[in-house]
Design a protein around this nucleic acid. Structure first.
Lengths: 118, 118
DNA sequence: AAATATGGTATCCAATGGAAACTTAGGAGA
DNA sequence: TCTCCTAAGTTTCCATTGGATACCATATTT
């Protein structure tokens, strides 16, 4: 393996930067089920702003992880879908959100203990 | 399951925020092998600053994912180790770094294609 | 006396993030 | 015709964050 994320200039750092983004993780998780339109994503990912959703989708599209399809309806319909490459990644990012849901109580308990002792 | 990362106020979002951090992912990956001292981490995680490393370790400790041990040597020795809880998480975050290393070429190709068409 | 090592904090400035307003384009309704 | 509506963004503004750099305490080595 010639790539190593622990080297500053390694291009894999770019990927890590992309994934090390709460919103990208949530978007990929949603698209893993089925293609979704812009405003539908905005509604389903509670708390994301239009600007950030737009930016995240653009970056994910550039990385070849999601595809963007425009339909000439009125008003225009834009649908985002996960690509085959994105699907391989979605496996690991959904593992991440699942871990969060399964272990949040242990984390919260640890935080309380830490805060009490400080 | 009562928790849902897609709800803005769900505490699992806190966990996602923590993991959605390039540096936290790299630190956990390093500590998964063996306990490591502060400056050793700093050397091995190319490009991280002392301030950020210090902050990340403090947050990971608060979340119960790493433990911190101080030894009264001269100069003082501080060793960071992964906890059992952290170890369960390390499985998924190393999957992430592995994905980055295995798929970076596909991502770079997608980016070039995207940039050419724009 | 000066340099070295450890494990940090403090300070400063640039970059990022989110909230809210604005935009574009084509219907639908009055 | 004039106004309103929706989808899918873009722009603007301000607060927070991020990283680079300098600094600190302590003790040994040169």
């Amino acid at each position: 393996m010639e790539y190593d994320v622990y080297v500053q200039t390694c291009p894999t750092r770019l990927v890590l930067d992309r994934l090390a983004d709460k919103w990208a993780v949530l978007v990929l998780g949603k698209l893993d089920d089925k293609p979704v339109r812009f405003n539908q994503l905005k509604r389903e990912i509670d708390g994301i702003s239009q600007k950030v959703l737009s930016q995240v989708l653009k970056k994910l599209e550039r990385d070849g992880l999601v595809s963007r399809s425009v339909f000439a309806t009125v008003p225009v319909t834009v649908e985002y879908a996960i690509t085959p490459l994105g699907r391989t990644l979605a496996l690991t990012v959904t593992a991440l959100t699942r871990w969060a849901e399964e272990n949040i109580e242990a984390v919260l308990k640890a935080q309380q203990k830490y805060d009490r002792s400080a």
